[in-house]
Design a protein around this nucleic acid. Structure first.
Lengths: 357, 357
DNA sequence: CACAACTATTGAATCGATTTAATTAGTAGA
DNA sequence: TCTACTAATTAAATCGATTCAATAGTTGTG
């Protein structure tokens, strides 16, 4: 075809300059919409854009980033993508980023702390302009975020409360969640309610318990200590399931009576259902069970799991918006407002809970 | 501190050159292990490395890529990351890439075809050196890969058979999978076996059916046409579940007798279990159910789902290895060997199937 | 001893953009 | 008339590496 170099070398800015009859400088200014483009005549702009278009010009990301010292990327570091909890958060992040000029660079630390740090460094090397850490409940708080503090990189953490200078967090209101969970069971008539608390090291765990406790206090509901158990420290995404199985088996063996159970999260709840079934009982007939999170598979189990939903997609969006906000104000002194953002949980009614006969 | 410039400007190659006493050229050659480094004296190398180390030098990715025309990255394009099927494949890819100098750049098309193309272009713009497409069963075959063919970019597709020039695929041996599935039920004594086939447009679906059919032929097992149904075209990752519910309800209503059911995949199987339970029956007591895939949640449902495992992590690894291989031979003419790689499925025994009473 | 071949290192060009300071022209105010 | 400012455009420097051709020095060989 006429005009198309047989050598399929890339189309560069200079090609556009030649074709449009303006200098590379002007072309650059127009196409990258630099501040100076205010002074460029409208006709010039148009002609340059047309030339670029007709040549199919795409700026070279590397050259651009090298000179401008901007990457137009945001690092998204997930601690363990196999945790179903994460996926919807990612969706929220991606959707929010879509309308901007930022590109997410997603890395999965595969539940490995070293990997996490390695990828963290890689993201820094790639000069991401901001960072979103998706921290599932396995995320070890101790010191892992130390290095985040050093760099002055606007950072948001989703799913974990990390109150540090220049680091913002978005999490669900765990206390309210716990409150709602028992409230639901209470309103169904249950009074002997077992609770499987999360690992003690997890702040989520304690907050949810606080909510449960507060409700109990307000309604003079007796929480029998013998019916309150705690998951051991978690190792991988499904250890919650196994913990749920074991603790529930143990509760059943103990011959304590209970007609309902609040599980720390959905996986624990699924474990409880499994244990119940193993003992020849079933939910909700013999025992109502409520989970927490509303991970996708909660809707797919039989019975469908009644649970407290974390608005995961919203959490992703909220974190991203705040990050963008910090980035927009002034890139140099970008500071994420430090405070914590709490999102409201919601009760999702399915079939694992029922009115006490 | 002594030596540390208060202005925290980056450490560049020139700084290392100054400190080590060699020229930038030599430093570059040594640190990037270019071919010429064969001729650099061992002592020189050592001194340069030490200088770089002590300054904390990290090469600038953008400058490097600009000049060398290499990005050291591999694009990983997932059609829908919320499909549990994908996650383990990703893990396989990442693990294989870890020991190399390639960095995966992961993008999630969020089940949106336009998004897929947008991200595809973005990856090209970022000059990835190879591409891995993780295509779950929702991936629309028609024409979506057209553009892959144009660019001469080494490409592997996981989870879908795309036989195109210069595109390799890695999938599970679906026919064998189907064969194993009925075989298992047959050996448990089942003779009246229902089958929920996948959407007709899906080649997976037909292959699995072929396997089932072949087994039936070899063992003169009668497959009652009235017990064979087909899922409608899929829309989102969980439409298999709903399809499973509806078809199973329909089968139950039809009053045809069957003691076992082969579901197209795990989600469909979970749907079948749900429908069974809705009709007051349960698996495996009233009907044995076998799924396909072994997605993570198959182990968490009650009863645990007996299923045919796709070796997803291996599939990811295999695809990556072959891509690396193509990349290694000669970057310019890198060609992925076109042929399809079939991985063996395996029966995973859990509790949703049992011997016919 | 001349010539090649190899070792060891470097100067200078280059990748493709952005950005700064400079240039020109026009126009308004003192 | 001179200054000051704005509008419109551009030449040239720059970002931080890689790479190629060039330069010596050294060794081998016929």
């Amino acid at each position: 075809m006429a005009g198309s170099k047989s050598k399929s070398s890339r189309v560069t800015l200079i090609d556009v300059a030649r074709k449009s009859g303006f200098s590379p400088s002007t072309v650059s200014i127009v196409l990258s919409e630099a501040p100076l483009s205010r002074y460029v005549a409208a006709k010039t702009k148009e002609r340059i854009r047309k030339a670029a278009q007709s040549l199919g010009y795409r700026p070279d990301v590397f050259a651009r980033s090298l000179r401008s010292r901007r990457s137009h990327t945001i690092g998204v570091l997930v601690f363990d993508i196999s945790d179903p909890f994460c996926v919807l958060i990612l969706r929220g992040i991606e959707k929010t980023l879509q309308s901007t000029s930022y590109l997410p660079i997603l890395m999965d630390a595969q539940h490995d702390r070293e990997q996490f740090e390695r990828y963290f460094d890689l993201l820094m090397e790639r000069r991401v302009e901001g960072l979103i850490v998706v921290a599932n409940w396995l995320f070890d708080e101790g010191g892992l975020l130390e290095r985040l503090k050093d760099r002055h990189m606007p950072t948001m953490v989703v799913g974990r409360d990390v109150s540090e200078k220049n680091i913002g967090s978005v999490i669900v209101d765990n206390e309210t969640g716990g409150y709602i969970a028992v409230k639901h069971l209470y309103e169904l008539g249950h009074r002997r309610i077992a609770v499987i608390r999360g690992p003690g090291a997890l702040s989520d765990s304690n907050r949810r318990w606080n909510g449960i406790h507060r409700f109990a206090g307000e309604h003079s509901l007796q929480l029998d200590e013998k019916l309150v158990r705690q998951l051991p420290g978690a190792i991988d995404p499904i250890s919650g399931f196994e913990g749920g199985v074991q603790i529930t088996e143990d509760l059943l063996r103990s011959r304590q009576k209970f007609t309902a159970l609040v599980a720390f999260d959905d996986l624990t709840a699924l474990g409880a259902i499994r244990a119940l079934s193993g003992a020849g009982r079933s939910a909700p007939r013999d025992c109502s069970i409520i989970g927490f999170d509303d991970v996708p598979l909660a809707a797919l189990s039989t019975p469908g799991l009644t649970t407290i939903r974390q608005p995961m997609e919203d959490m992703g969006s909220a974190a991203t918006s705040r990050l963008l906000n910090a980035l927009g104000n002034s890139r140099v002194t970008a500071e994420v407002s430090t405070n914590l953002e709490l999102l409201r949980p919601a009760l999702v009614l399915r079939d694992s809970t029922s009115r006490l006969a």
